[in-house]
């Protein structure tokens, strides 16, 4: 492979890892407590802007702005969740969509803070290391690839811990039957809020890694296009399943890049795929695989 091609492959891998992590954080909400949130780009954006602003204007070190991004996005999710979870089902979906739109409009128009359409540029490459010990600058593509992979690993472990055992059972009980869950002593709102807040916080962290990688943050990064991407990954891969979401992330991040699809075509194809899957296999590819396996 020519060096240019090689760099391109690594770039695609980084994107895939980050999108897989983001999709998993989204699936905590959509797949495990069954709340169809469309607000995820807002939390991704809050984290991204927090990291972008703190690292450029306040010269915060990477670890600190990453932590701040996680906290800020989690906080915004928790605060937004209070009114949003008064809505149910379709109203909740519409409410979260509205919230995401408002967040995007704020990012576009609050020029003093976000620089609006001019974007925040010059976000430094991350430097990781222990205080007092050696510091490692993540300046090359392969180095960033390992960082993205490590982030994906962290999200995978958290996803596993949160969705199995006692907590996972409570999430799934709320998802399957909220009324019955309450009769089992589970406060549905509490678990919905928990998944929403943790999902939002993780999205914020991934937003931070994303802008450090691109070194620029613009309002377009947090539009509805991102929601569509996440919906495609999660619902086509297999909502509520780790393997399904990972497969979805690989198929719908790496493949379109490799095929070099134009963005408009990508949206058209994604829209058509969403329709087909929703009609033919509501549980996504994971559901298809499982049905094949059990049919044998």
């Amino acid at each position: 492979m020519a060096p240019g091609q090689q760099r391109y492959v690594v770039h695609v891998l980084i994107f895939t890892a980050l999108f897989a992590a983001l999709a998993l954080s989204y699936d905590l909400v959509v797949g495990h407590v069954g709340s169809l949130s469309l607000a995820h780009p807002a939390f991704f954006g809050v984290g991204a802007y927090t990291a972008a602003i703190l690292s450029t204007r306040a010269a915060w070190p990477f670890a600190a702005d990453l932590a701040a991004a996680v906290v800020a996005a989690g906080l915004v999710a928790a605060l937004a969740g209070v009114p949003l979870f008064r809505l149910v089902e379709h109203a909740f979906a519409v409410g979260t969509l509205g919230f995401a739109l408002v967040a995007w409009i704020v990012a576009t128009n609050w020029v003093e803070v976000t620089r609006g359409p001019l974007c925040i540029t010059g976000i430094p490459k991350p430097v990781v290391g222990v205080p007092g010990g050696p510091a490692l600058a993540i300046a090359t593509l392969p180095a960033y690839y390992w960082l993205a992979l490590a982030a994906l690993g962290v999200v995978l472990v958290l996803y596993r811990l949160l969705t199995t055992f006692r907590l996972g059972r409570a999430f799934h009980a709320v998802r399957d039957n909220e009324v019955l869950a309450a009769s089992a002593g589970i406060d549905p709102l509490r678990y919905r809020m928990l998944a929403f807040t943790i999902g939002g916080a993780l999205a914020g962290g991934i937003g931070a890694l994303y802008v450090h990688y691109l070194s620029v943050m613009c309002p377009e990064e947090m539009t509805v296009a991102l929601t569509v991407n996440l919906l495609v990954i999660v619902f086509l891969g297999g909502v509520g399943t780790m393997r399904g979401v990972l497969v979805g992330a690989v198929l719908f991040t790496a493949l379109p890049e490799v095929l070099r699809l134009a963005p408009t075509w990508r949206l058209v194809i994604y829209g058509a795929l969403l329709l087909v899957i929703v009609v033919r296999s509501p549980e996504g590819l994971e559901g298809l695989v499982r049905r094949r396996a059990s049919a044998r």
């Binding site: 059972r169 799934h172 399957d176 009324v179 089992a184 002593g185």
Partner: peptide, 26 residues
Amino acid sequence: SRTFQQVSVFGRLTALENLLVFLQQH
């Protein structure tokens, strides 16, 4: 504890998990 007139279970959890849910919050 109560049961519901309209039969009501956690459809995607196994029968065993359905029961575990009812103990854990206690």
